[in-house]
Write a protein that binds this DNA or RNA. Structure first.
Lengths: 340, 340
DNA sequence: GTTGATTCTGTGAACGTGCACAGTTCGCGC
DNA sequence: GCGCGAACTGTGCACGTTCACAGAATCAAC
């Protein structure tokens, strides 16, 4: 029994029309900035709008226009993203600024619990957004399926899950970034450089390894690559230990992520080696780990704002009717700190 | 000329009705889970919905129902909040989880540029949300004015700006938190404790000073309070220098914020004092500063998720028709690290 | 003064829902 | 058979907007 206390009933285009002594059509034309409104009418309408305090009802407009000028920004796993990952904020702002230029509203939708999933799916299905930007989609995600089924224009930040074959997406150039940070490590004079490679079941994992290999060229040595399953601290530590057993003489390490690098540094220290004097270490991601290690980590930073802006551009382009799925690959920056 | 390529036209309640051989009304009743739908009708409708792929149109429902089951979460100054402040993410999630329980959708709206301001104001005016949660409102903010004018149910995280007299809000208990962290400092055996007080033109500033005073009781010494204008590193450093000139014998400091504390530690070190051996230091906020100082800062942590959840609760209560503005004050946690 | 283009205006129909209300069917007791 | 309430169903209207279309006024050219 929502005994909703008297919320003031809003003025409609009709009220403005009577007040101004013109018709609804004319008011509508004025509001939407069309031609064919006489100076006299314009003046009367402006006065009337101010008097009755008219504000167009967006729900009604959406209904008849069949579009909303709004784009959903869907965030999964919000805890890890919002609390731990410094990138998400910048991605968000990059996307917002691009959408803003195109006069589109961005609505951030958070998918946390099971309930959220259903509700966001309803929200999207309901036609309150013209398109979506999806960050960190999961394989077989219900949201992704809804988006597919509705044929809602979408752009992914990161690789879209398998099913979404026809989707646009923007990713970082893992190969290029790995190549270039390994190159920097070479320039510091390191001769025997190893890699703790992680997550070789994912594109990001194999791409980073590929970039490492490219940078080394002839000097690449298969035995200096130690694969570990996860992008984690403990995996990095254990992998580094094994790598040191095999190649005690190495003087440089490229770790597939900052967490892996932090673990590697731990293993190097426990073996009595100094970083960076004996062994130079570089990581990937510029996550919170990178600042916590001693010395601080040299690493690869994602162009986060750029990712957001590009994703926005892709979804806007789809809204304009361009149906060819696009794939954008962005270059990364390198942040050089004390670890190499 | 948006040559929008054929987006499949969506099935309506009418299509379902025809397919199932019942009337629109019956379908509507089924969809909204009302009574008075026969088993036969239910079955036919379920089949028909699956067949034509019906999804209710939210815009149409919003229009006729005059409410949206959605709440806007408005974020100003997104750069400082999303990129630097670790709290905003948790506030967001706390609010989302509470709204989710009440089956409300949360739409995060980012206000960055001038354009954003207008667009978000339009969005709110358009009636796409039933209420709003506002973080870090600015005095004389256009958004706040729009909210006021529309009499949109609102809850603020932090003190609402002057104009919004009738608004609900949730704040942290600055007095209590300052009292309790000063108390902890006393328990470590410090005898002469000073404070670098900041921003005494704001409630947060005077409240933290008041809590400090309460904790010390009889031992409170006016001359050990050094006021500085801003919550900043340089203000903290300069203030600490002056405080040390006046009271070279002090052995404990409560800084009004982590940035101030970081500056104070710098000043203590340059004067040759050791932290925490000679002087114990505590801060406030548990911001990024707290982790960067050496030693890491003992400080006050905001119950960020709680702030969000309470703000959500307040706005939901207003949506249920409760018109009395509420004011909630939450207790803080203390994070004890090496600096004291 | 007729023609025709241009500018402006008003009207009715849609958009897809929910709801009030009227109507129908059914079971049950007498 | 009748009355009666309960269970169920269908119809028209309203929500506030945009848009197509028809019509009116103005003006220039012949």
């Amino acid at each position: 029994m929502t005994s909703r206390t008297t919320r003031p009933k809003r003025a409609t285009v009709h009220d403005v029309a009577v007040e101004a002594g013109v018709s609804r059509g004319t008011v509508s034309r004025y509001v939407n900035g069309e031609r064919y409104v006489s100076a006299a009418a314009r003046e009367a309408i402006e006065l009337a709008i101010a008097k009755v305090g008219y504000v167009p009802n967006t729900a009604a407009r959406n209904l008849v226009m069949q579009r909303t000028q709004a784009v959903g920004f869907i965030v999964h796993e919000p805890h890890s993203l919002f609390v731990e990952d410094p990138n998400i904020g910048e991605i968000l702002l990059g996307a917002n600024s691009r959408l803003s230029e195109a006069d589109h509203q961005m609505a951030v939708l958070i998918v946390d619990t099971e309930r959220d999933t259903e509700r966001v799916a309803r929200y999207l299905s309901g036609g309150l957004v013209d398109g979506v930007i999806i960050v960190s989609a999961r394989v077989d995600d219900p949201i992704t399926r809804v988006v597919e089924r509705l044929q809602l224009p979408a752009a992914y930040v990161g690789h879209p899950p398998g099913a979404a074959g026809s989707a646009s997406f923007v990713v970082i150039d893992n190969v290029g970034a790995a190549r270039s940070i390994t190159g920097r490590l070479l320039e510091t004079g390191r001769r025997r450089i190893g890699m703790v490679a992680a997550a070789l079941d994912r594109d990001s994992g194999t791409d980073r390894l590929a970039g490492f290999r490219e940078a080394l060229g002839d000097r690449f040595d298969e035995t200096l690559v130690e694969p570990v399953p996860l992008y984690s601290y403990s995996a990095g530590r254990d992998g580094m230990r094994r790598l040191l057993d095999r190649a005690p003489d190495l003087d440089g390490v490229f770790a597939a992520s900052d967490a892996v690098a932090a673990g590697a540094i731990e293993a190097l220290k426990e073996s009595g080696r100094r970083v960076p004097d004996d062994v130079g270490v570089v990581g990937f991601d510029d996550s919170a780990w990178a600042q916590r290690t001693t010395p601080a980590l040299s690493t690869v930073r994602q162009p986060a704002a750029g990712l957001g802006a590009e994703a926005a551009r892709l979804v806007l382009s789809r809204l304009r009717g361009d149906d060819t799925p696009a794939e954008v690959r962005l270059d990364c920056d390198i942040v050089w700190r004390g670890s190499a």
